[in-house]
Design a protein around this nucleic acid. Structure first.
Length: 728
DNA sequence: CGTGGTTTACATTAG
DNA sequence: GTAAACCACG
């Protein structure tokens, strides 16, 4: 396919910094790849002189593959990756300049919170006032902004001062334990480049071109990084779309796009607004939704494609019904000659995947889940990894604490506390403290034996580690530590699942290909496990439907997309409702979701959904209500006419509804008015007492209503006879 | 003192 | 629904 005019302009632009405002589906990745190919092929730049940054591993992989395909050569040594991946690569090569120890490991957010919790306890602070999660968030926020504890202003109030104190203590412990968290990867890289002028010069000389994808998602420190590296000689191509900025919650600064135009002046700005992905209906819907946001750079996607089929909207009873509906439709697509792989289910939060998975399994549909409970974050895998970490780095107290008594080996809280005390008194790590305690007589006989056994276990494994294949070491670890037996004995299917996962870990070790010969394979594997979610577990070539969050769907496209859980409080998520900014970010997420679809978009929502163990009565998401009525078609299943009471979902909030859907309006004025009842209404029944309306069925005089009474019983009642009295 | 069973608090999005 | 916190027991 030929490049269109702005695409061609972007690919072949002469020496100047570029800003490409690229709408969804406008061929952005293609432009990036073609631009790189152009620079190498026509301008004679070496792959060595380019650096390309993306935000997800998936996107980085795809970019590298497409580039290799275009150029017909391997680009192994080229710097293509995520900010975090490249920072990690930098720190591995320059650990000395960065003030690190060669063996440093990466601390993920789970470990980070664990450590913070420990610190809060050690400093005898109230963990209700200083929630580990929130404090970790504070630290991450500071690092995103490039702030160390000493940059922060103290003396304002106790809370703030304590946060800073916690940050400082956290930093001290990370250093002592040779651990680097995600934010630290970026900040440390930035500081090292800034402070070591010869290093900076080296990289500035090396790179003559920087390409940054998803520029709207860069945070302060990433932006500073680019500025530093670019200097005056290096050219930069920034590609982004302000309407797809969905990472403000982790420090992304949408303003970076605006700042770029002045900081990197002169900048040539190119807009890609022609969409090659979606049908006209889908684009119309997306444009209408995003138009409700304020302060946009302004951009309207258009296409030459035909209108296409309307967006379908299905109102499900509950999440099971929703999942079944989706599974059915997916099967139908395949029955009609389509592929599983052409379809994706997108949801707001990972927790939604469970029910969907269930339905797909039942329907015999092959699927693949991205993200979510990441492979390397599963409890049993984490345990195994922690053993490997301790073998690699004896200073890793976080790993030590996690596995010291997993599986139970007779080292209880009391003994561990003794180790912590010794560690504090002597200013050393838990491992050294344990060693010291086994030599003295501070421990009881039983505890001492157990600690000695643990120390020997780790040392033995370490000794063997040097001449074992990684996978054999992993096998050894899960066997010798008793982890496999321990998790295997967990009751129910869970035990088997955990054993399977542990075996899967051994396979992952076997399949692992180290990048370089320099550092140990174990070290490389552990780093990769922290940076990569382990999404490669399933066979990527298999024809399977894909499940993922809206966030991880960015940059992807599918002929048929199911956008599920389109309910208020789920999407937009409750947590984002209290701020205008939060809501607009959710809307951009909706925009991202809608624009993933090429041919067919199917939106579903559930009238009842179990959320956090409670029944939740959802209203249709405002984002779907913002779609023009003529783009949407409601789906009704022939077999059941289940929802005469759309009023409960559509009509309850007439406010902020820019586009009122005529059909929805009908329902408002229909049955809802007559009975005054809707899903979730409280009612009183003469015999059964008070209850909550769960569902309706049928219409007219035959209409039945399902009520769950407060004694827990559920009953279907014919409305006409039941004499329900609405309450409240 | 350590272990196992039981209760209770807690829940986005991601590298 | 899960994992940490809690509590009674050996």
């Amino acid at each position: 396919m030929q490049l269109n005019s702005p695409q061609y302009q972007a690919v072949t632009a002469p020496e100047s910094n570029l800003l490409v405002i690229a709408g969804a589906g406008s061929g952005k990745t293609r432009v990036l790849v073609e631009r790189m190919a152009y620079l190498m092929r026509d301008q004679g730049l070496s792959p060595h002189a380019l650096m390309a940054v993306t935000f997800t591993n998936k996107a980085a992989r795809e970019m590298r593959e497409r580039l290799e395909e275009t150029l017909g050569r391997s680009l192994h040594a080229m710097w293509v990756g995520t900010f975090h991946g490249l920072a990690h690569r930098f720190l591995r090569s320059h650990w000395r300049d960065a003030g690190l120890i060669e063996q440093f490991l990466i601390l993920d957010s789970d470990d980070q919170q664990r450590m913070m919790k420990r610190i809060i306890a050690d400093l005898q602070l109230d963990d209700a006032k200083f929630k580990p999660r929130a404090v970790a968030g504070f630290v991450n926020g500071c690092k995103d902004e490039g702030q160390r504890p000493h940059h922060l202003q103290t003396g304002r109030d106790y809370y703030n001062d304590t946060l800073i104190r916690l940050y400082a203590e956290y930093e001290a412990r990370c250093n002592a334990q040779n651990l680097v968290d995600f934010g630290e990867l970026l900040l440390r890289t930035f500081e090292t480049l800034k402070n070591k002028s010869e290093l900076l010069r080296h990289y500035k000389d090396r790179f003559s071109y920087l390409l940054i994808d998803e520029f709207q998602d860069t945070n302060t420190i990433q932006y500073a990084w680019i500025r530093l590296l670019a200097g005056t000689k290096t050219r930069v191509m920034a590609v982004g779309d302000d309407d797809q900025s969905i990472y403000a919650w982790r420090g992304a600064r949408i303003e970076n796009i605006h700042r770029y135009e002045s900081d990197f002046a002169p900048v040539t700005t190119i807009r890609l607004e022609q969409n090659y992905r979606s049908t006209d209906v889908i684009l119309k819907a997306a444009n209408a939704v995003i138009a409700n946001n304020t302060g946009r750079l302004g951009k309207e996607l258009w296409t030459e494609q035909s209108e296409g089929t309307p967006i379908q909207l299905y109102a499900a009873f509950n999440e099971q019904d929703e999942a079944r509906f989706v599974a059915n439709r997916m099967s139908q697509h395949v029955d009609h000659g389509g592929l599983y792989g052409e379809q994706a289910i997108l949801y707001r939060s990972n927790a939604q995947s469970r029910v969907l998975e269930d339905a797909l399994l039942r329907a015999g549909i092959p699927y693949r889940i991205y993200g979510g409970q990441r492979f390397y974050e599963r409890l049993e895998i984490k345990n195994a990894l922690m053993y490997l970490r301790l073998i690699q780095n004896r200073f890793d107290d976080t790993a030590f604490e996690r596995i010291i008594n997993v599986p139970p080996r007779g080292i209880g809280e009391r003994t561990v506390e003794q180790m912590r005390q010794t560690a504090r008194d002597e200013g050393k790590g838990l491992w050294d403290s344990a060693l010291q305690l086994t030599r003295g007589d501070g421990l009881s006989g039983r505890a001492k034996t157990a600690v000695v056994a643990f120390v020997d276990l780790i040392n033995d494994l370490d000794r063997k580690a040097t001449d074992l294949e990684l996978s054999d070491l992993a096998r050894d670890v899960i066997d010798a530590t008793g982890l496999l037996a321990y998790h295997g004995s967990e009751k129910g299917e869970r035990g088997q699942a955990r054993v399977d996962n542990l075996n899967e870990l051994v396979s992952a070790c076997r399949a692992f290909e180290p990048e370089d010969e320099e550092s140990s394979v174990l070290l490389q594997f552990l780093s990769q496990a922290s940076l990569d979610a382990g999404e490669t577990q399933a066979d990527p070539d298999a024809d399977a439907v894909q499940l993922m969050t809206l966030h991880s769907a960015k940059g992807l496209e599918f002929p048929q997309v199911f956008l599920v859980g389109a309910e208020e409080e789920l999407f937009p998520h409750v947590m984002s409702l209290d701020s205008a900014g939060g809501l607009e970010e959710e809307r951009r997420l909706a925009y991202v979701g809608i624009t993933r679809a090429m041919q067919h978009l199917i939106v579903t929502y559930a009238e009842t959904r179990r959320l956090n163990g409670r029944d939740h009565f959802g209203l249709l998401s405002r984002f779907i209500r913002e779609i023009p009525a003529d783009c949407i078609e409601e789906v009704r299943l022939e077999s059941q006419i289940s929802r005469p009471f759309v009023s409960s979902s559509f009509g309850a909030r007439p406010v902020d509804r820019p586009h009122r859907h005529p059909r929805f309006q009908d329902y408002d004025d229909g049955f809802g008015e007559q009975t005054g009842l809707g899903i979730g209404s409280r009612v009183d029944h003469g015999l059964f007492g008070e209850g909550t309306v769960l569902a309706f069925e049928g219409s007219g005089p035959q209409m039945k209503v399902q009520v769950r009474f407060d004694d827990g019983s559920k009953k279907w009642l014919v409305l006409q006879y039941a004499k329900l009295v609405p309450l409240g």
